[in-house]
């Protein structure tokens, strides 16, 4: 959730912020650091664990900060990171009840 709100939006209860899910295929990563550098929310960080290819893949610092802009997916030259919207089971059940 965004932290600074000067008033509560009228539809805050209806609209749910999409929950991000970040997947890193660490063995494909060559450690160029584009995703870490150009993430607007600074969600990623260089990990200190070497992968199969001898590079340091990124790791997620705080997944809830992710705004699902998918810029990391777009800029990754190795197709090694992607974000998708998390489908929450509880949300679906609520929706069915309504």
């Amino acid at each position: 959730m965004p932290q600074k709100l000067w008033r509560k939006p009228l539809d805050a209860e209806k609209i749910k912020l999409p929950k991000p899910e970040i997947h890193i295929i660490s063995d494909l990563c060559k450690g160029c650091g584009f995703c870490i550098e150009f993430c607007p929310k600074r969600v990623l960080e260089k990990s200190d664990k070497l992968n199969k290819r001898g590079a340091f893949p990124p790791e997620v610092v705080d997944e809830s900060e992710c705004a699902l802009c998918s810029f990391c997916t777009a800029i990754c030259p190795e197709f090694a990171i992607f974000t998708i919207e998390k489908k929450d089971k509880e949300d679906n059940q609520d929706g069915e009840k309504e």
């Binding site: 060559k30 160029c32 584009f34 800029i75 030259p77 197709f79």
Partner: peptide, 9 residues
């Protein structure tokens, strides 16, 4: 860090 991967993406 090569740009070719980004182009392909």
């Amino acid at each position: 860090g090569c740009g070719n991967g980004v182009l392909l993406n």
